[in-house]
Each structure stands twice: as structure tokens, then as C-alpha cells.
């Protein structure tokens, strides 16, 4: 582990990881209580990837991800209340209840969405990176993808164009080893040599232990600096693991309980807690306080989502067009943005 991060920074990362963990536990509970519909993909186990990478970026560096997107939104400090309300399909949700679990967006925090078609966010990611380059901004776009996206055409086309155009983007592979129920070795050629994917496009490759938030941080800090220096795009393999099923409805027959419990020994939150305690960077009471706060926030988010009023049917025809016509009407921005930024737009 690197010691380049001070205690305050580490505690900040711990706080975010715990917020994600406790939020996801409440999301699972709410799903089981049938307050959440559709698909719900939990981020538990992978917290170090979103938190480590996002902590290494500047707040206005744009990020974009796939459908397992709760962690990224919360790592970008979306208020958990708006995140939970989105799961409940309420108008108070981050996407006004029109996107659901797989489509979290947060314009204020430069989070360009969860995107639910595997690999479909990669072309969007290079578009954001093109925008950065076009506007000559000193920013880096991070485009997250799961290992399943490695086998989609859009990923390869985007890697190629990013390399050809020297776009300021990092493709952050969240390699949790399973695309739904298919192990990476069954679906991906050269699964044991992923830098080859980048080499095919003459792109810089890097890798990190995705269960170690400091390792993730250091890797992305280095790569983001290289991208900012004009060294071109990068591909980073974050080796991680999800403890829960692909979605809430996954019986997980494709892997053993032993495998899961072995991986849980690598828990990224425990790892950071142990590091903090072992190095006397904080005491247990501080850890407990952070966890208590995360639990409270998660519980509060459920209460907020529950208490939010039902959405009026007139919302059906808003936000279809920016310049409405016929039956289509202009919508209000989500409460999340109106509260933060009154009078915007």
C-alpha cells in the first residue's frame, strides 16, 4: 500500500465506500420489499474501484458508466436520498424516476449516466473526451465498463477511435470476472492477458488491485496525470469482485459459495479499516462513527424515498423533447439540481 495519501483523504474514501455499502444493503432490502422494480445491480464488493478512481480525479472530470452505477453516483457525492428515490421511481429521484437503477445521472457532479446496454457507454465516453479535446479543457473522462463489455463491438471501435484521435479518456475495466453468469475465461479471448486488448490499439495499459482503494487511487492518479499531459488514452484493468448476484434475481449457480466467501476475505472496506487502525491513523471509535453515519444516511434515504409523493401522470409527457411540440411539455430539472442550483437554466 502506498502512503502518499494522508489520514483525512483515507477517511474520506472510507466514508464514501461505507455510504455505498450501506446504501446497497438498504437497496437490496427495499427490492425484497417490492419497493424497487425492474433490475437492480448492486455494487457491493466493488466499492474501491469507483471510490479510488473518482478520488483520484478532479471534481469536474466527467465520468460515465454502465448499469451497475449506484457506486459511481455516490462516490461522486450524489445525496443518497435522490439515489434511493430513483430506485423507488419517485419524481424526487436523480433522474425523476424515469431512469431507474440503471440510469442514474448527475449533471452537477459531471456524472454522465449509467447506461444499460453493455458497452453502449464506450462510444458516449469518447464523445465526452472529444468534447474535452475540442474545447481545449484540462480534463480527463473516465469511462467505466464491465468485463462483459470487452466483447462488444462498441468497446473495440471506441478504443480504436480514442487511440487514433488521442482522446483524453481512461477506459476503466471493472473486471469482476463475470458477465452475468459467464466467467471471463468462457467468453473473452486472452482473458489472462487483458493488456493485449489495449496493445491491439497501441494504447497504454495499466492494472490495479480493485479490492484495494489505495492501489486504485494511485493507478488512476498516475494515468489521469499522463492523460492530462497529452500522453493519450489508457486502459486500466481493475481486478475486483461482486459479492452479490449479477442482479437481485440471480441464483448464482455459476459460482461456489466458497469462492464468494474467499473473495469476501479481500473486502476493500475491511482492508482500509485495518490499514487505518494498524498505522494508528485513527481509532475504532472514529470508524464506528463513520459507519453509523453511513447507516443513518442509508436509512434516511429510504425514508425520503418512501415519503416522496407519487409522481403525477402529467410527467409522462415531459422531458421527451428539449423543444417540445404537440403533446410534449417542458419538464422541470430534478429536485436534486434545483436544490443545489436554484435558477439554473
Amino acid at each position: 500500500m502506498s502512503d502518499s495519501l494522508d489520514a483525512a483523504a483515507l477517511l474520506g474514501m472510507l466514508r464514501r465506500m461505507m455510504v455505498i455499502r450501506r446504501f446497497e444493503e438498504r437497496a437490496a432490502q427495499s427490492y425484497q420489499q417490492a419497493n424497487v422494480g425492474g433490475f437492480c445491480h448492486l455494487y457491493i464488493g466493488q466499492e474501491a474501484v469507483a471510490v479510488g478512481s473518482i478520488s483520484a480525479l478532479r471534481p469536474d472530470d466527467p465520468i460515465i458508466t454502465a448499469y451497475r452505477d449506484h457506486g459511481h453516483a455516490l462516490a461522486r457525492d450524489m445525496d443518497p436520498r435522490y439515489a434511493m428515490a430513483e430506485l423507488f421511481g419517485k419524481l424526487t429521484g436523480c433522474s425523476k424516476g424515469k431512469g431507474g437503477s440503471m440510469h442514474y445521472f448527475d449533471r452537477e457532479h459531471h456524472m454522465y449516466g449509467g447506461h444499460a446496454i453493455v458497452g453502449g457507454q464506450c462510444p458516449l465516453g469518447i464523445g465526452i473526451a472529444f468534447g474535452i479535446q475540442y474545447l481545449e479543457e484540462d480534463k480527463v473522462c473516465v469511462c467505466y465498463l464491465g468485463d462483459g463489455a470487452l466483447n462488444q463491438g462498441g468497446f473495440h471501435e471506441s478504443m480504436n477511435m480514442a487511440a487514433v484521435m488521442n482522446l483524453p479518456i481512461i477506459f476503466a475495466l471493472e473486471n469482476n470476472q463475470y458477465s452475468m453468469g459467464t466467467h471471463i475465461a468462457r467468453g473473452t479471448a486472452a482473458a489472462d492477458n487483458l493488456p493485449a486488448k489495449a496493445a491491439a490499439y497501441d494504447m497504454r495499459a495499466d492494472a490495479c488491485d480493485g479490492m484495494d482503494v489505495q492501489a486504485v487511487y494511485n493507478c488512476f492518479a498516475k494515468q489521469a496525470a499522463l492523460v492530462r499531459a497529452g500522453e493519450g488514452p489508457a486502459f486500466v484493468d481493475c481486478q475486483t469482485y461482486r459479492y452479490k448476484g449479477h442482479s437481485m434475481s440471480d441464483p448464482q449457480k455459476y459460482r461456489s459459495k466458497d469462492e464468494v466467501s474467499e473473495q469476501e476475505q479481500q473486502d476493500p472496506i475491511n482492508k482500509l479499516v485495518n490499514h487505518l487502525i494498524d498505522n494508528h491513523l485513527c481509532d475504532q471509535s472514529e470508524i464506528d462513527k463513520i459507519d453509523k453515519h453511513a447507516k443513518d444516511q442509508a436509512l434516511e434515504s429510504v425514508k425520503f424515498a418512501n415519503d416522496s409523493p407519487e409522481t403525477g401522470l402529467d410527467e409522462l409527457f415531459t422531458d421527451v423533447y428539449s423543444q417540445p411540440y404537440g403533446p410534449y411539455k417542458k419538464g422541470d430539472l430534478p429536485l436534486m439540481l434545483r436544490e443545489r442550483d436554484p435558477g439554473d437554466r
Binding site: 464506450c122 462510444p123 465526452i128 468534447g131 475540442y134 471506441s158
Partner: peptide
């Protein structure tokens, strides 16, 4: 890639 790039750039 390039049509998706257009969508992403427009979002930006």
C-alpha cells in the same frame, strides 16, 4: 463509435 461519439459530444 462515431455516431455514439456524436451523442456523447452533444451531451457535453
Amino acid at each position: 463509435a462515431f455516431s455514439g461519439l456524436g451523442v456523447g459530444a452533444a451531451m457535453y
